[in-house]
Design a protein around this nucleic acid. Structure first.
Length: 468
RNA sequence: GGCGGAGUGGCCAAGUGGUAAGGCGCGGCUCUGCAAAAGCUGUAUGCGUCGGUUCAAUUCCGACCUCCGCCUCCA
């Protein structure tokens, strides 16, 4: 089975085939965070989605090179640096570190390369020079360099590959900042922004005078430097389709004359509690906010992975409770299998893995994959309870399968917590009390354990302690 | 105004031209000294509204309603 993915270039689901003639390696670029503040849950939907793409490609046997940029120079950052009377590096370093902490809390695999824009200034300048030399970019009177869409189209290139553009009908200018009035045409965009007083110390020398890179150009410069002028996959949030990604294509193809990216995939946004996230509505959650409410990164990741990536998804606190319950059901089944399997090992049974892979092959249909997983859980539960019908070998094979799936999804269960000896002693006392029919005492011990955060599970084979 | 996406049970969410996966929640049952936990089980004559095509539509077509995204530095 081969992977099918939606491609924004064709606006349709198509077979994914890497550029590598051997069909073995895949180069993947995902637009990363702008490190001006803590990232919110919407940002992380995109990164978890990108992580799923990477993990699934690796699962299918591809050697993936995953690159994600860190945007560490940009208008908002400069503004914050000014307000906080700090330096660019100090300011962005703090939020970059926070970002990777959050990233890890969600079990996202660290990309192989995480280039910072400020460390690729020379490459950015070289790319802009190339565009200027080809006559596609021009220096305006204010010292900024702009990309000319007219000249680009004059070279036989197409602007508007990711979406239909109709400049006459568009509402121009609402968000054009006042420092861009030197442009020849409203559609043109900045490659290099001349230094202005508000920039403070944030500036680099260039052939056009001091300044800093435009936003879109960093992704073109860094992705091509690391992955080459043409590569397989470029991911990002759907809001980046225009202008960011369209401009990336223009800059890259304008400079190289080669197709930039073969396959563009965009993740949809999410709503929070049914509404667009906003600080005013109180439904703006950073990852830290959610962790602070007691939810785990694993629960949050599970919830983000329940819906299809191209559908807008309603993220709710109630949904997180549901994620917790769903994961508990899964873990419970795995624990029971583990108990039966003991130290026996066996090859993972292939059926579940095949079904989940078949679902993911269809444009990463996670909802269908979950359907398969939970149907499998029910089937296993029927064999395990009320009395086990599985041999240790069978249980080990089943356990191998579910563990492989959880690893694929980045939802491995953390190691079980050790039960303190004093609690085990209490549990034994309760059993003694029950045997003596002193239920008052046994219930008191049960309450005591519950107060300590542990619940007793009385099974036909005796009591077990479980962390709440 | 232009371009694009979406409306499926109490909530979340798949899917299909032939009669609705899965998760959460809720009810029932099993187990239990009682509970809890766990498991099993039940839970949409219906897929925004109104028309049309068809032997058959939630699925195709048209109109309408509602919601969401992008339209020059937002994941």
């Amino acid at each position: 089975m081969s992977l099918k993915l939606f491609n924004t270039l064709s606006r349709s689901v198509q077979d994914f085939n890497p550029l590598d003639p051997a069909g073995k390696s895949v180069d993947l670029y995902c637009c990363g965070p702008t490190v001006y503040d803590f990232a919110h849950i919407g940002n992380f939907r995109t990164f978890v989605f990108a992580d799923l793409v990477r993990r699934y490609l690796e699962f299918k046997g591809y050697a993936v090179r995953h690159v994600m940029n860190i945007t560490d120079v940009e208008d908002k950052i400069i503004q914050r640096v000014r307000e906080n009377k700090t330096t660019l590096r100090e300011y962005t370093g703090k939020f970059e570190a926070a970002f990777f902490e959050d990233f890890q809390a969600l079990s996202c695999l660290r990309p192989h390369d995480t280039p910072r824009a400020t460390e690729y200034i020379a490459d950015i300048i070289a790319l802009v020079e190339k565009l200027v030399a080809r006559g596609i970019a021009y220096r305006a009177a204010d010292g900024s360099v702009y990309f000319s869409i007219e000249k680009y189209q004059g070279c036989g290139c197409r602007y508007g590959q990711l979406l239909k553009l109709n400049f006459d009908e568009m509402r121009p200018g609402e968000r054009v900042s006042s420092d861009e009035y030197e442009k020849e045409s409203v559609a043109d965009f900045a490659l290099w922004k001349a230094r202005v007083p508000d920039d403070g110390e944030v500036a680099w020398p260039s052939p056009w005078g001091e300044g800093r890179p435009g936003w879109h150009v960093e992704c073109s410069a860094m992705s091509m430097k690391i992955l080459g002028e043409s590569f397989d996959l470029h991911l990002g949030g759907e809001d980046l389709i225009f202008p960011h990604h369209e401009d990336e294509i223009a800059q890259s193809e304008g400079a190289t004359g080669k197709p930039f990216v073969k396959h563009w995939v965009h993740g949809a946004h999410l709503l929070v509690e049914g509404k667009k996230m906003s600080k005013r509505l109180g439904n703006y959650y950073t990852l830290r906010d959610l962790l602070g409410k007691g939810f785990s990164g694993r629960e949050i990741r599970h919830l983000l992975l329940t819906a299809h990536y191209r559908e807008s998804f309603n993220f709710t606190l109630g949904g997180l409770q549901g994620a917790r319950a769903a994961l508990a059901r899964l873990d419970e089944c795995a624990d029971k299998l583990k108990e039966i399997a003991g130290t026996t090992t066996a090859t993972a049974e292939p059926e579940l893995i095949q079904k989940v892979a078949a679902a993911l092959d269809e444009d990463l249909n996670m909802s269908r994959a979950w359907g398969e997983i939970f149907e499998w859980v029910r089937e296993k539960n029927k064999l395990l309870l009320p009395d086990n019908k599985l041999s240790p070998e069978q249980a080990a094979a089943s356990l191998g399968a579910i563990n492989k799936i959880l690893a694929l999804l980045g939802l491995e269960k953390a190691g079980a917590e050790e039960i303190p000896a004093e609690l085990t002693a209490l549990l034994e006392q309760r059993q003694a009390a029950r045997k003596a029919k002193d239920f008052k005492r046994s219930d008191a011990i049960r309450d005591e354990l519950k107060a300590k955060g542990w619940v007793i599970e009385d099974t036909p084979k005796g009591p077990k302690l479980k962390k709440l």
